[in-house]
């Protein structure tokens, strides 16, 4: 899985790509491990190019959320397709994550924090 990292004023955008399954979730976890020790005020996880996320991938989303919660930071997930949003909803993630439709909306939302 290719993860494109872009610096923004308040932190980082991580653009994820393709399927996040049991194999590619390991690469997503590696990215988490790289970033976990650096305190980052805001993460945007851009999923516009993500086709589906299985539970192995959800686990890493949760790790990012826990990290930001611990550091009093922010996390916005944007660009989920309907099916992936549905998976987040079934998993009880919609009550703990913040969402935006597009990256631009996510960036605008960050400005309100």
């Amino acid at each position: 899985m290719e993860i494109i990292e872009t610096a923004i004023d308040k932190g980082k955008v991580l653009a994820l790509n393709g399927k996040i399954d049991v194999v590619s979730a390991r690469e997503f976890q590696q990215k988490y491990d790289e970033l976990a020790d650096i305190k980052t005020e805001c993460f945007i996880l851009d999923c516009s190019e993500v086709s589906y996320v299985s539970s192995a991938g959800l686990r890493v989303f949760l790790l990012f959320m826990k990290l930001q919660h611990k550091n009093n930071g922010h996390l916005i997930v944007c660009g989920l397709n309907q099916m992936v949003y549905n998976v987040f909803e079934i998993s009880g993630f919609t009550t703990i994550f913040k969402f935006a439709d597009t990256r631009d909306e996510a960036l605008a939302l960050l400005d309100t924090f």
């Binding site: 399927k19 399954d21 049991v22 086709s51 589906y52 996320v53 299985s54 539970s55 192995a56 099916m83 998976v87």
Partner: peptide, 9 residues
């Protein structure tokens, strides 16, 4: 993609 996810699980 739902089927792919299900088989992944």
């Amino acid at each position: 993609n739902t089927f792919r996810l299900v088989f992944d699980e």
